[in-house]
Design a protein around this nucleic acid. Structure first.
Lengths: 277, 277
DNA sequence: GAGTGGTCTAGACCACTGT
DNA sequence: CAGTGGTCTAGACCACTCC
């Protein structure tokens, strides 16, 4: 009987060693035996303690990393993860933005929705935009209610805080090209960041927004998103589709926004109609 | 020079073999060379094709699984994941529920918010509830604006569709115990499912809701959540805190809701005030 | 029983971090 | 340079699925 078989026999309750070890470490973290920020025992120490081979320990720690409980840092150690500071993203931003549309440029000047969310000055924020155009795929054609292949203006945005290196969001925004073209200034990224934001841009082509619909899902980041948002293993993203509808009923802008799940809280408030007594 | 070194030299661009293989497979999936639902080549075939050892292939496929691109099934094979059918969870449910509070019990009878979301009959839905009470921790005490240790009514709910085995959500709901106790019927799970839902329960103790605030984040599931919601590797959950505020301004109910990210879309609509022309 | 994925060992060497 | 995590090999055996 080899050593693996022996261990199996001893640990009848939970056949999988890596799960047993993961459960044990998880319990210790929950019990604050290892606190947030602490370094976990080295893999070598765990190997000796649990009497298993290195890959088994790595697997066990990998499970905890996938759950977002710990974070491994090459050459430094494995640490119990501290919650990252969260940025609140509230829908009040939209009414706030709308209220500012008709102000003068100097009044709109330093204001943007990101500033609203983070409570920071525009000057402390990173901003990057690039424009191009593309043909609507089936998905976007349905949302805009146009035929597939219709030319769309495609704008890519990255926003972030200068002192932090990773952006706060990845945004792909779409508009029907011919609609945006009514104001040629809207077709070039040179005019970004546009004072007053998207709603002011729409105002210049005679569009007033009636409502904004947001659809949220959660999923693991793609390899690209993980790199861009500097997400480690064990995090998820909020994938949000924002659909802006004009007072005419037309869908005028669609944005696909990817937000780091470990530092974003999306807040929505539903007001209810009062009963008449 | 051992074989690993040799390979390194050959593949200069991307040192990590498992990443090179993962990138290659990822590209093939995106190019629909392997389509959703298809079985991927066996690990043995990949091992031969890429000329690496078994654990390296497993690591590469593991990366794709963590991204939610493929799903491994023991004894059957590895499959390209198909998107799961999504359930929409819209905040209209709340106004809908409020409008029904003052109806008679028979009118409220078969209606619940889950029915509203899924569009299914109450009879086709699973429902499970259990009640207990506990002392408020610091977090909940802050939200309710009561002192730490205040006795809270704690209710656990699981809702789901009978024909599917996994629940649609895991809910932990909290109320200040003394407030709920004004109607003793509210203290026992025996009266669940309560016709008309939480808002009707609150109505019986003289509470009308003014607004509901929801805070959403995304994260990987805990081991427990993955088991309960039958989530495989490569999925995330939406963690939603719902805070119900009465017309008096008091926080009367708080729910922590966990939703499977791969089959839930949370929808929020923000109405904007019209400009006066 | 054949096929396929899952767990595990034992050990080598690479790569990053900090003293 | 020591310490720590990351990648990889070669091979054994287990466990699940389906014919």
């Amino acid at each position: 009987m080899d050593s693996q078989q022996q261990t199996r026999t001893v640990v009848r309750e939970l056949a999988k060693q890596y799960e047993r070890i993961a459960a044990d470490l998880r319990a210790k973290i929950r019990a604050k035996e290892y606190s947030p920020g602490d370094r976990m025992p080295t893999e070598d120490a765990l190997k000796t303690h649990y009497k298993v081979s290195a890959p088994t320990i790595r697997h066990a720690v990998g499970v905890l990393e996938a759950e977002g409980l710990v974070q491994r840092q090459h050459g430094r150690g494995t640490f119990v993860r501290k919650p990252r500071q969260r940025v609140q993203r509230s829908t009040e931003r939209y009414q706030w933005e709308k209220d500012r549309v008709k102000l003068s440029e100097t009044e709109r000047g330093t204001t943007g929705a990101t500033e609203h969310d983070t409570g920071r000055e525009m000057s402390a924020l990173q901003f990057f935009a690039s424009y191009d155009s593309l043909a609507a795929n089936a998905d976007l054609a349905t949302v805009f209610d146009v035929s597939e292949g219709t030319k769309l203006l495609h704008r890519v945005y990255r926003t972030g805080i200068k002192t932090e290196d990773a952006p706060l969001s990845l945004i792909d925004s779409y508009m029907v090209h011919d609609v945006a073209a009514r104001n040629p200034d809207l077709l070039s990224a040179d005019n970004e960041p546009w004072p007053g934001g998207t709603q002011h841009q729409l105002y210049t082509i005679g569009i007033e927004l009636d409502y904004i619909r947001e659809e949220l899902t959660a999923r693991p980041p793609t390899a690209y998103e993980a790199e861009q948002l500097e997400l480690s293993a064990g995090t998820a993203v909020i994938a949000l589709r924002k659909i802006s509808v004009a007072t005419t009923g037309d869908v005028v802008e669609v944005s696909d926004v990817v937000l780091p799940g470990d530092r974003t809280v999306a807040v929505y408030t539903t007001e209810l109609v009062r009963w008449e007594d």
